[in-house]
């Protein structure tokens, strides 16, 4: 039988985007250590409902670490203390009986709080909309094996494409920068042959959209540490390089006014 834990939670509660918020203390009693962090919150919420208190809103969906919906600061760390693990895959056996757990939503000016622990991450979609695609309308594709892609290149693109868009990189960054998110998408597409035609245009548009919402990179490295997919900061360097290239050797300027 699993062990049971008694915990003290300090949870950020906020009724709406412009409502004032504060930490509230809850006692999570008799939590099985096989439960995931989010299941622990489920148990607390069930008890809240029983006592007539409005349950805590927290972001979650797939609970298998791939959809990117979940994400809160747990004791000052994005997604909690387990490296390379989203909050939904963090299990209570990593905590000890009697622990106090502080739970706070992602904080960034670009991520306004919707309610309690839920924030609005839509600027990340705006960055993708600005150029995070290969323009290949349905029906225009050539045979998939027409363009060989070296395995190493495909693997590297896949490393970058593994991003789940949870926003932990922004949350962990002291500047609320979205460089890791943006550069991962850029490297995924910029490193592949399919992405070459739009490479510099894409980089320019995505970087400039990103900067409308997010801060600048000061190379702390908190983003990679927080990332549940452990996406490398190296991609940020590649993004910087491609952006400078897009400005200095911008091919679209050749022969044009």
């Amino acid at each position: 039988m699993s062990k049971r834990l008694n915990l003290t939670l300090s949870v950020w509660r906020q009724a709406g985007p412009s409502a004032p918020g504060s930490f509230m203390t809850y006692h999570a009693k008799n939590i099985p250590d096989d439960a995931s962090f989010l299941e622990m919150l489920d148990i607390v919420n069930e008890e809240l409902i029983e006592t007539g208190e409005v349950p805590i809103e927290f972001p979650h969906d797939c609970r298998e670490g791939i959809c990117g919906t979940c994400g809160v600061m747990i004791n000052g760390r994005a997604h909690g203390q387990e490296k390379g693990t989203a909050a939904c895959q963090l299990h209570m056996r990593k905590f000890s009986d009697g622990d106090t757990i502080v739970i706070e939503p992602w904080r960034a000016r670009a991520f306004p709080i919707v309610r309690d622990l839920v924030v609005d991450r839509s600027p990340l979609d705006k960055i993708v909309a600005a150029g995070g695609y290969v323009s290949a309308p349905t029906g225009t594709a050539q045979d998939a094996n027409e363009t060989p892609i070296p395995k190493e290149v495909a693997d590297s693109a896949m490393d970058a494409a593994a991003c789940i868009g949870c926003g932990a990189c922004v949350a962990a960054c002291p500047n609320s920068a979205a460089q890791l998110f943006t550069s991962a998408k850029l490297w995924h597409l910029n490193s592949l042959p399919q992405g070459q035609a739009e490479r510099f245009r894409r980089t320019e548009h995505m970087v400039e959209t990103m900067e409308q919402f997010f801060g600048s990179c000061t190379n702390h490295g908190e983003c990679t540490e927080a990332c549940p997919k452990e996406i490398s900061q190296d991609f940020i360097a590649y993004m910087n390089r491609d952006y400078i290239k897009s400005q200095i050797v911008n091919r679209k300027l050749a022969g044009q006014k």
Binding site: Y133, V134, A136, T138, G139, T140, A141, Q142, D143, A144, N145, T147, P148, I149, P150, K151, A154, D155, A157, M158, A161, H188, L189, L192, Q194, G195
Partner: peptide
């Protein structure tokens, strides 16, 4: 058959062999 072509053209990083083919 068309789906694979379409997705590859969009830059889906499908697993490849050393020769670069899918």
């Amino acid at each position: 058959v068309d789906i694979i072509d379409q997705m590859a053209a969009q830059g889906v990083p499908f697993a490849r062999e050393y020769g670069g083919l899918l």
